[in-house]
Design a binder for these strands. Structure first.
Lengths: 173, 173
DNA sequence: CTGAGTGCAAACGCTTTGCAAGTCA
DNA sequence: TGACTTGCAAAGCGTTTGCACTCAG
């Protein structure tokens, strides 16, 4: 999987590369993400309970796009009885704060990820459910031009490529 | 709303312009669409019941992107007691036949439209729910290149711009 | 005739909500 | 302390399904 290419693709990630090694200031990247998330909540006048702290850590650690039940499962390590309603309530709150994103891919429960600095879109492998992130400035620009030409401002957008590994069986839709 | 522009936008529709005037062969465009849909069903060895005939007509007439309940409402003119289950079952069947498309926009029930010859994407006005169609070959091409570079074939894709009319209140997200 | 299609009601999966009990600041 | 958060159970919503009845072919 080549990460740099000539053509229009200016940026592509596969699985996110996370460096959880200790860094100069003694914090891991996850520590930093957790802190960012925690502060977002505190700033909104929200209490940091055990449940929320656990979820914040889990979200910061996540390198995939887990769904609510999966987040509950992961949070249970720290807070055994955490309820699904609490998970959903926290996720809704965090989404409102803009620190996580909710993705509603086709035919699956919503999946969540903490907001990255760089915007990106998603490719979903229809066979495996695996999600690959990618970004392309040219597409973003074209979208903006189209909306503009129609007299609209884009509030947000959604570009999802439902794909299949080359050479898999049943190559037709 | 200008329909032709210089730049990259090669094709944009607002509300679909439907010419339901009688044409040379004595059929309206809706007749033709209904026939196309009916034949698709019959071809699949599916019986054409009153309910299905009504739905086919309603779908052919639709210039918007109605949801299941709305289709039921419209079909009731021809078949008073038509049930929502029948509507859903028929829609699922038609989708499988590839003659209609199911769109799952954010926070709303699925919306349906009969498959047009030309592929297009959607712009959804977040204030009004209104849907505007657009198409852009360049974006399609870029998507294909990205998937290809990552070793995937696109099964299908989804590009939705959630927009707000320029100059509406609360211009921020 | 006879099996595919229907309406009804009940179940479904995901998500939200009301409420009493618990807890964080 | 006292308002905010939790867990539980129940409700919500869009959609699907089991079943006996009906009807198209």
């Amino acid at each position: 999987m080549q990460l740099s290419m000539k053509m229009q693709i200016n940026c592509i990630w596969g699985l996110r590369v996370s460096s959880n090694l200790r860094e100069k200031d003694g914090m891991t990247e996850i520590d930093r993400k957790t802190k960012k998330l925690t502060e977002a909540l505190r700033h909104a006048g929200v209490r940091i309970t055990r449940q929320r702290a656990a979820l914040l850590t889990v979200l910061a650690e996540a390198e995939d796009h887990p769904e609510a039940v999966e987040l509950q499962r992961r949070a249970e390590e720290a807070v055994p009885g955490i309820s699904l309603s609490t998970v959903y309530r926290t996720l809704t709150e965090l989404e409102a704060q803009g620190v996580i994103l909710r993705h509603q891919f086709e035919g699956t429960p919503a999946r969540f990820e903490h907001t990255e600095t760089q915007h990106h879109d998603h490719m979903i492998d229809v066979e495996t459910g695996e999600v690959v992130e990618f970004a392309n400035d040219r597409i973003e620009q074209l979208q903006a031009e189209i909306a503009d030409a129609m007299g609209y401002d884009i509030v947000h957008h959604r570009l999802e490529l439902y794909v299949r590994k080359k050479g898999s069986e049943t190559p037709r839709d």
